[in-house]
Computed example of a mutant assay.
Amino acid sequence: MAKAIPSDEAFYKKEIGFLLELLVKNKSVGYSGICWGYDFDWEARYTKINAYVPTSVATGIITNSLFESYLIFPNEKIKEIILDAVNFVLKDLNRSYEGDLFCFSYSPVDKQFVLNASLKAARLLSQAYFFNSDPELKKIAKTAVQYVTRVQKENGSWPYAMHDARSWADNYHTGYNLDCIDAYMNLCKDQEFKNEFEKGLQFYITNFFENEEIPKFYDNKIFPIDSTAAAQSLLSLSRFGKLDLAKKVGLWMCNNMQDKNGGFYFRIHKHYKDKTIFMRWNNAWMFAGLSYYLYQNHNKEYENK
């Protein structure tokens, strides 16, 4: 938003500083590097993760947002945080091997093969490599990316996880995968996975948007129409230059899932609309998606001038 609305840059820069301090204050403690988990117990299908147990997902989302802000407002503290978080990935996360390749675990207390979680860890290593050019970080990140590209299906899709019943392909986890693979290729200057990325992106664009505007949850059915899926659509489509489609998705969400108070609803199901307004699942993600679209669109308009 600071770059999309230059007149408000000072305000957003101040907010970034405030949020950075809040994140550091709420880190998980007792681990090898700075990391984060949710502040509540939660049960997944194959594991239970207690409050403040850090995950590759929460840590990867936070460090990615910090890295994005570093590119706009360079800050040595952010650089130090990302380099420190590498120790969490390397020393606390488990690695499940298949041959010479491996998948990073979701958390220190499980050994799941959750693809987007492993890629978020690889992206963090790639961002650290951007700062220190440590070849070992690039090597480890590449091994994790290579595992995910190896299990990619012929049609370009990915299952949510390997070796269990979670074999579906969905919108936002596919977007996560694409974002992370792209980050690895750009930050580590390695285009080896370009074909797999392009195949995945084509699958994403072809299968997750009904009438070129409605963000589908799964590749084979529309419902539920979900705020996080829509927000990730905005992030990925904008990142990869698909601004026209991103605009249509954003407008559809504003016209169909935004309350008059500005908040976005949770989900639209086939026969009813769940108007619950969550801060994290709905609004944090939609704010991120809409603002990233505005940022990329502003850059495009600037380049055209």
Rank of each mutant, 00 (worst) to 15 (best):
K248H: 10
I140Q: 15
K27S: 06
Y272C: 05
N177C: 13
Q232G: 02
K194I: 13
N283W: 08
T63Y: 07
I62Y: 12
Y12Q: 01
S233K: 03
S32Y: 09
S69R: 01
L23I: 06
A2M: 04
W42H: 15
L251P: 03
K139Q: 06
S32L: 03
I225P: 09
K248E: 14
P6Q: 04
T59W: 08
R95P: 01
F73V: 13
M1F: 12
F11I: 12
S56M: 10
C180A: 14
L22G: 11
L22V: 13
I277P: 13
D274Y: 03
D219K: 08
W285R: 04
W36P: 00
H298G: 04
F11N: 02
D41E: 09
W42S: 14
L23H: 11
I49H: 04
I181L: 15
I72N: 04
N87V: 00
A117I: 02
E9H: 04
L290T: 07
I181F: 06
L93H: 02
P215G: 12
F208Q: 10
K242F: 13
S96T: 13
L125G: 01
A85E: 10
L101E: 02
A183I: 07
K14P: 03
H269T: 06
L178E: 08
T149W: 04
S65L: 12
G262S: 06
N282E: 14
A288Q: 15
Y218D: 06
M253T: 12
K260R: 12
D84N: 15
K91R: 08
Q258K: 15
F266C: 10
T149V: 15
H163Q: 04
L124Q: 10
L294I: 04
K247T: 12
A144E: 00
D259H: 11
Y293I: 01
I62S: 13
H173M: 10
K3E: 12
S107G: 09
S126M: 02
T55I: 06
A2K: 08
A51Q: 04
N26D: 13
D8R: 13
P215R: 11
E303L: 14
T149H: 02
L201T: 01
A165Q: 11
T143I: 09
R123V: 00
M1W: 08
S133M: 03
N297Y: 13
G30K: 05
F197Q: 01
N64I: 03
A121P: 04
D182C: 02
W158G: 06
A122F: 00
K248V: 02
L245W: 14
Y295V: 02
Y292W: 11
